[in-house]
Design a protein around this nucleic acid. Sequence first.
DNA 1: AATTTTTCATTTGTATGCGAATGAGTATCA
DNA 2: TGATACTCATTCGCATACAAATGAAAAATT
Lengths: 148, 148
Amino acid sequence: MQKSHEDRQSAAPAYHVDRQVGFFLRQANQRHVAIFANAIGDKLTTTQWSALSKLKEIQPCSQNQLGRETAMDVATVKGVVDRLVKRGFVATAPDQNDGRRVVLSLTEDGLAVIAANVGAAVAATEETLAPLTSGERMMFLELLQKIC
Amino acid sequence: MQKSHEDRQSAAPAYHVDRQVGFFLRQANQRHVAIFANAIGDKLTTTQWSALSKLKEIQPCSQNQLGRETAMDVATVKGVVDRLVKRGFVATAPDQNDGRRVVLSLTEDGLAVIAANVGAAVAATEETLAPLTSGERMMFLELLQKIC
DNA sequence: AATTTTTCATTTGTATGCGAATGAGTATCA
DNA sequence: TGATACTCATTCGCATACAAATGAAAAATT
């Protein structure tokens, strides 16, 4: 078998975008977002869901803190929170001790929408990992966390 | 040790957003995009890089086909291609046989910018996977592909 | 040949996601 | 106290990402 022109020129293997981690990460994320959107009943995005869920754990808290806890940029979390406030899931109040802060908390509706969709969120996680066996899932999650 | 209220109510484990695949996938992708942006010298995004690299493999081709090959929505690939055309990396021409199609191809500058940045792209992949050992990388990529 | 379906490209609207800049408020420290 | 540094929230610009709708052209079907 004759060697290809490329192989004759250098020992470096051919570059293929569709074999790079970044390419797969983007696709895997895309697939999960689609699964989540399909599973959830109340038109909540993955980031909105993250914000709501995290807020339930750490409320009351400032907007920036929520952003840090959910790995969102300040500009990003601003938009996410704005939409959640607009829909009545999150309430804002000025901080008494710090004039800069806006204190975030969940409303009744916010708590209700979380309760109503936890099942779907769990199902979305399950469906995303469906192609993997139980052992593969543990291994995958462990490795995935390492590159975050 | 007394059982928590939650445990008494149900056998279901507590839900934590920051332990779900989706949460990690988003973060891992974020980190890679940041690494890539930092490594590349010519202000190319990961999607723009995907489009250019793939185009080099399959040119000439239509816009929609490029979108399918790079896992991009028709609306998304439109914007990506527009910016690449604007910067002179991609040329468009009407298809002789099909009045709907726009035939895409790389320009001289397009080929040059790819050549000038392959090294950085490889380095970005390397840095993204840096937290993993060689064996872990193979395992991770294999599992990641399964959930795409 | 006429109808239906599919494909292609485009546009609109909504939602992230980040860099960078700004202004207001707080904390630190000389 | 006064200068400096930091934090918080906001805003602007740019770049994905998808749903949905549109119009034009091609392919498949009857």
